[in-house]
Design a protein around this nucleic acid. Sequence first.
DNA 1: ACGTGATATAATGTATACATTAGTTAATGA
DNA 2: TCATTAACTAATGTATACATTATATCACGT
Lengths: 67, 67
Amino acid sequence: MRLRILDILEEKGKTKYWLYIQLGLSYQNFNKIVNNETKSIKFENLKAICDILECTPNDLFEEYHNK
Amino acid sequence: MRLRILDILEEKGKTKYWLYIQLGLSYQNFNKIVNNETKSIKFENLKAICDILECTPNDLFEEYHNK
DNA sequence: ACGTGATATAATGTATACATTAGTTAATGA
DNA sequence: TCATTAACTAATGTATACATTATATCACGT
């Protein structure tokens, strides 16, 4: 379940740093999420990422983003 | 981010127990997920639930299931 | 020269998902 | 009577998300 965060950031012309500031997570853990080095995610963070990137969970997940 | 697992099970005429057996998680942790007592979820379990219930993450999450 | 955007790594601690083991209760069918 | 479906609870341990603190590098604008 790869997260397409970097792809979506690129589509929107925004930087990782921008999302990091918006989210308010520590950079360490933010970086792991964005670089797909995590095996799970808190619902509140998934929701926050969707809110900020103006998308839905399906858009974020590699295997569902075209469904 | 409430999970609509029980709603989807009811729509499909399946029991909690059926999903529990399909998933292979411990009943303790399965029950917490289904009863929305967890704050996060492993991607592999989210994927497995979607596979078994033949749905997408958006269908599972209360605030995205009509999007 | 200095602040800030942008990106990254390392160490340590806490919260929590999930596993394991061990029970309980009740309905149903062989 | 006994196995199976169906549902639930408690105790203990491990894996991992996330926080905190501390670094570092490089570009860019003032």
